[in-house]
Amino acid sequence: MPATPLPKAEIGILFYPRCQLSMAYGLTDMIAIAGQFSIDHGGQPLRVSRWEHQPDGGFARSHDTHPELGDATRPEIWLVPGRLTGIPDAQEAAPYARWLVDRHAQGATLASNCGGAFLLAATGLLSGRPATTHWWFADQFRTRFPDVKLDCDRIVIDDGDIITAGGLMAWTDLGLRLVDRLLGPTVMLDTAKFLLIDSAGREQKHFARFMPRLTHGDEAILKVQHWLAAREGKAISVGEMAAQVSMEERTFQRRFKAATAMTPIEYVQHLRITKAREHLEFTRRTVDQIAWSVGYEDAAAFRKLFHRLVGLSPGDYRSRFAAPTAQAA
């Protein structure tokens, strides 16, 4: 019986307190499956090792898929999973950041999933570069790392030596990207089909919900935000918004943008599209009816805006996300 081929490459996963185990273990399983498909095609498998911080400040293997190799190999790719509760602060991130900087300097590729981007950004290596994380953490991330070009619309951003993936289950997209890179597209497609994963690529903005900034401390702007939420953004001009707080229009626009990171018009658009998504998910109203109900007389303009903000047409969005119990208008 022929011996199993030696691994073609190694992926090291950094374990830290309360990290996302489903990602770490799931990716390990995915790589094992991909490795078998690679062998079936006459290729080599991959090695996955898990690493934990030691009392002496270093890191050591806690487990891997080819223990018979001992420490004979080193990961070409280092991956940082996210965490379901609590973003690591600067002090907690420091030892992991130092380790990753050293590995990167030795030629390794760095990758993260979900909140793992916070540990990756703590290295300073993301400065001025594009990256993504879970859309839920976007504001926190921008506050801590304003020099990173954060794009939470995307599921995976592959910037060569650094790869970041979005929230939680985006590890499946990241895993397929790594398989494609290390074992080729044929093995990647075989793996995706076996695991029933869409290999065509997704975007976070299909799933992300508008989360307005409400903790900015500007009471006047907050009052307008609450007023807009009650009216669902319908038929409201910037002048009407400014009048709610007796503010000159130009001053209002400047303060609104500073507080919310959006212009008043952009903010209202997001409110309207959020309401439109609810109608598409839970009613059977036509797209034209929904456009009218959220404040758009021009259904074509509504469709164009919806696609720009959500990444899908209203019809495609309904096909993917409509509830089975959606009610007729």
Rank of each mutant, 00 (worst) to 15 (best):
H53C: 05
A97S: 04
G42R: 01
A138R: 15
A259L: 04
R144D: 09
T283I: 05
G311F: 14
Q269D: 09
A138W: 09
Q54V: 12
A34Y: 06
P264F: 10
E203Y: 01
G233H: 08
C19N: 09
M247H: 01
I77H: 14
T260V: 03
D316P: 04
L214I: 08
P67H: 05
E76P: 03
A192F: 05
L228I: 11
V245P: 06
A72P: 07
A328N: 05
A328Y: 02
A258K: 10
L222D: 10
M188Y: 06
A229N: 08
I13K: 15
F321N: 07
K149G: 00
I163K: 04
G57F: 10
H226E: 15
L14W: 02
Q36I: 02
M247D: 11
S112V: 03
T274V: 02
P67M: 00
D64I: 00
R103Y: 02
G82Q: 07
E297G: 15
R144W: 05
A230M: 11
V294I: 10
R129F: 01
Y296D: 11
Y16L: 07
M169G: 03
Q244K: 15
D190P: 00
E232D: 13
V238T: 11
E203I: 08
T133N: 11
L228F: 00
V80Q: 04
L222I: 12
A131E: 07
V187N: 04
G175K: 10
A93F: 03
K8V: 01
Q225T: 14
L196G: 01
C152Q: 11
T164W: 05
K149F: 00
A242S: 13
Q44M: 03
P67N: 06
R284H: 10
Q269I: 08
K8A: 07
R177A: 15
L120A: 07
R255D: 02
G128N: 06
M169V: 13
G311P: 12
D218R: 06
Q244H: 11
M1G: 08
I11W: 09
C114H: 08
D40W: 10
G42C: 03
G82A: 10
I197M: 07
F256K: 03
L125W: 13
M247I: 02
W99L: 05
S293E: 07
D190S: 14
V187L: 08
A93C: 01
A108Y: 12
T251N: 04
A230G: 14
R285I: 03
F321V: 08
V238Y: 02
D298K: 15
H53P: 09
P88R: 05
G295P: 15
V287A: 04
V294R: 13
F145Y: 15
D316H: 11
M211S: 14
M188T: 14
A323L: 02
F59T: 12
D158G: 10
S49L: 00
M247C: 13
L120C: 06
G166N: 08
A90P: 01
S49I: 01
P17Q: 14
P212E: 03
V179T: 12
V238K: 11
R144N: 13
V156M: 05
D298Q: 08
F145L: 04
A97E: 10
L69K: 00
A261D: 15
D218G: 02
L176G: 03
P264G: 10
D158P: 01
P185D: 13
L309P: 12
A259I: 09
R231T: 14
A235I: 05
